[in-house]
Design a protein around this nucleic acid. Structure first.
Lengths: 308, 308
DNA sequence: CACCGCTCATAAAGACAGCTTATGCCCCCA
DNA sequence: TGGGGGCATAAGCTGTCTTTATGAGCGGTG
């Protein structure tokens, strides 16, 4: 039986002792881009010896030469190019973290106060905020995440300027515009029989099969239950998207998840999408605001970003 | 209490000053999973005060309360749950980095020597190595990345036990098995006219449109040129997958890229896939080995992982 | 041919962050 | 009412990263 609970190897410990810190990774990216240790150092606001020493200690830590130094500059070695690409993914994740975290900081003077549902806050907002920051660097954004009820409440009590919800209905008292469509999709580990299936699943078949699901009451579960007429049969119920993903990847069974959550797993074939027919698993993602108060200023900027 | 002055580091740069380091993020994940600072500290092999201090300084850095302490344990706040999910993505990227970097370290005594093409080494191997490490923790792997010629050479000269190539043909002297199919896909930013297109592009149309492409000679470009009869028209030629992606996201035009490289961008709608008909942009990903030397031992383990 | 500008490396000294040990407070339960 | 789990605080130590100062290789240029 595959373990469904989330557990960690835990031994061998200390990822942070085997992976260079973010500063070093940023430095490596800068070196790759600029072709010079000194130029990279200047860009990051440190001295050239500091950069030199840091790259060197990173090479020692990894046991691989990353950079070919020459009196005319520095280029990545083959291994260095590979490492740099892996480093870039860490840095990108860190940028998303930073964008989200900065918005999360409570500042009542923020010019743009956003309230969003969990899924949107988790997967989409960091990217939007990065884009917003690129276009309007001085826009101060605050973010509050909650369920649909929270979103409505904060908008109507003027604690937020713009909201984002996923769901089947538009809360009353709010105007809205659909900014994207999220699809719940059925996924399995590549080994599952359904993974090779070409003929789409029918609703009845889906309803008859025990699935790995979020707990009753979650947005995801509500959409699925509505689509199947309340008949979804849980193989196991888990309380986070992450746990559901982990269970599905480990082969525990088919899972139903937002497409947003499994982009990478699908691309890497850790999960396979199972075609479904005759069941409407789409849900609209909507931007919402108090009726009559059309978004202006930064709220309008963000809104237009989300629809680009 | 010692006063903490808010020190605003130079604008734009210095991600590492605004994002907690990997050790802190790992600690946060452990706290989330175990529900206690002390338990998390024990798991990571540090003392409870160290964990307490570290979480606290992370909260100060982010300006957000992450953990609700109580005499009976600690639970994440709402904001903490969000931050933890963003942190998890950083840690996962770091795990992939670590798996790849460890294999990259040259060890002649490695029990399994792998040589792979760039795309496979970059996007797929780290995940496989993580899985291999989970199943066979003591397997020492070394990795060399190069082009197809390098793969053949190292296999035939017994410098590698198992190779991975992407491409149209099987190099002679090697046996192979197809482990996956990669598709080159046409993508554009969501604003592009093609983004709304439902009728598939025809070959002629694709060949007539200037595209953002990898340089001539790259594996990706070879497949495209072959599919179009050598007619691909570059809008601009870039030397890395990352640069092509960035150009496409910024709206410079349509790009042709491996599906592997754009999983996340598609899920987040930063890029949109444009349907294509009548052009074969698929390419096989193959595991290869010297004719007759069927993979055994760890090579066989890795091979079976890749096909799971 | 010697100089200048660029590159990177090395050495020594200071600043800071994080760890540990030691201790205290709070709450729950037996 | 004591024991145990949980967290916070204080003080001292250690290691890492930093800066300043300097040296050395390479290439173009007057």
């Amino acid at each position: 039986m595959s373990g469904v609970e989330e557990r960690e190897p835990a031994i061998g410990g200390g990822l942070s002792h085997r992976v260079p810190d973010l500063g070093a990774l940023e430095l490596l990216l800068a070196v790759a881009r600029l072709g010079s240790l000194g130029a990279a150092a200047r860009e990051l606001g440190i001295t050239q010896p500091a950069a030199s020493s840091r790259i060197r200690s990173m090479e020692r830590q990894l046991g691989v030469a990353l950079v070919d130094r020459s009196p005319r500059g520095s280029r990545l070695t083959d291994a260095g190019a590979l490492v740099t690409d892996w480093a870039r993914r860490i840095v990108e994740a860190a940028e998303a973290f930073d964008a989200g975290a900065q918005a999360l900081r409570v500042r009542r003077d923020s010019r743009l106060r956003v309230v969003a549902s969990m899924t949107i806050a988790e997967y989409l907002l960091p990217g939007w905020l990065l884009a917003l920051r690129a276009g309007r660097p001085d826009t101060a954004v605050s973010l509050h995440a909650g369920n649909s009820a929270t979103v409505v409440e904060r908008l109507l009590s003027d604690e937020a300027d713009l909201g984002f919800v996923e769901g089947l209905t538009v809360p009353s008292g709010l105007d809205s515009v659909v900014i994207a469509h999220d699809h719940l999709i059925v996924v399995t580990a590549p080994g599952h029989v359904w993974a090779r299936r070409r003929r789409p699943l029918e609703a009845a078949e889906l309803a008859a099969t025990p699935l790995i699901l979020r707990e009753k009451g979650s947005g995801t579960r509500q959409v699925l239950d509505a689509a199947l007429g309340g008949l979804a049969r849980p193989l196991i119920e888990l309380s986070s998207t992450t746990a559901v993903k982990a269970a599905a990847v480990s082969g525990a069974g088919p899972a139903v998840l937002s497409e947003l959550a499994v982009g990478e797993e699908l691309a890497l074939r850790r999960l396979v999408r199972v075609p479904v027919a005759g069941v409407s698993l789409a849900r609209d993602l909507r931007a919402v605001w108090p009726t009559g108060h059309r978004p202006v200023g930064p709220a309008r900027d963000l809104l237009s970003l989300t629809r680009s």
